[in-house]
Design a protein around this nucleic acid. Sequence first.
DNA 1: CCTATATTAAACCAATAAGTTAATTAACTT
DNA 2: AAGTTAATTAACTTATTGGTTTAATATAGG
Lengths: 108, 108
Amino acid sequence: MTLSALADPTRRAILARLASGEAYVSELAEPFDMSLVAVSKHLKVLEKAGLISKGREAQWRPCRLEPKPLRQVDDWLESYRQFWNDNLDRLEAYAALLQQGEVDEPST
Amino acid sequence: MTLSALADPTRRAILARLASGEAYVSELAEPFDMSLVAVSKHLKVLEKAGLISKGREAQWRPCRLEPKPLRQVDDWLESYRQFWNDNLDRLEAYAALLQQGEVDEPST
DNA sequence: CCTATATTAAACCAATAAGTTAATTAACTT
DNA sequence: AAGTTAATTAACTTATTGGTTTAATATAGG
C-alpha cells in the first residue's frame, strides 16, 4: 500500500513538506491548486498507509511524517542495490579495459 | 511514473524474478494466475517506466531489469533517510536517559 | 447561544487501471 | 504452404482514483 500512496505527486510533495516539520491540514493544502477536501483525502491515503499520523489541537489536526513505511521501502530496495552495484561494477571493469586499450570502443 | 509502476504487486514480483536474471514474457507469466495478455501489459508498464527493457530473439522477447529508475527511487529516499535517522537518534538518546534514571518512564 | 474556523463525510463524475476474450503479427518447423 | 509458438493489439468490462460541490461535525470566542 505504501508504494501506491507514494505514486501520487501531490502526496509526495506533502511528505516533502512534512519532512521539515509538522503542519496542519490547511497549511498543507495551501500550495496546491485544488480544494482543501481533495488534500484532506490525500492525507487520508497517506495516513492509511502509515506514512503520516495526525494529532489533535482544538480544531486543528497537526500532521507529521512517520518513518516506518519509508524505511520499509528502503529495505525493499536492498535486494536491488546488489543488482545495480553489480551492473556498475561491470561498467567500471569495462571502462578500465577501455583505458588499457584491451578492447575496441563500440562504433555507435 | 516509476512509483506507480512499482505500486502493483504483480509488477514487483516480476522485478524480483528479473533480479535473478533475464526471462521471456511467457516465463514471467507462468507463476501468475492471470492471462499472458495481462502480464504482457504489466511488462509494458514496466518498460515505459524504464524499469525493464526487452530484447529480441526470434519470437521471444527476453526481458531484463534496468537499474536506473530504482536507483532514482533510492536517491529520492535519501532526503528521508536523514529524517528517520534523526528519529532513531532521538529514541536512542531517550533510551539512554531512561537508563540513567534521568526521566520517568511514561505511564502508558 | 451564535458564529466563524478547521476538518471530514457524502454523493457524484471523468479518467485510469487491471483484467478479460478474440484477433493479429511475426518467426520458426515441417 | 501450412501449422505452431510467442507475443502484441483491439475491444470491452469493472473497479479504483482523483477530483468536484454540498453538507455535516467539532471547537473556540464573543
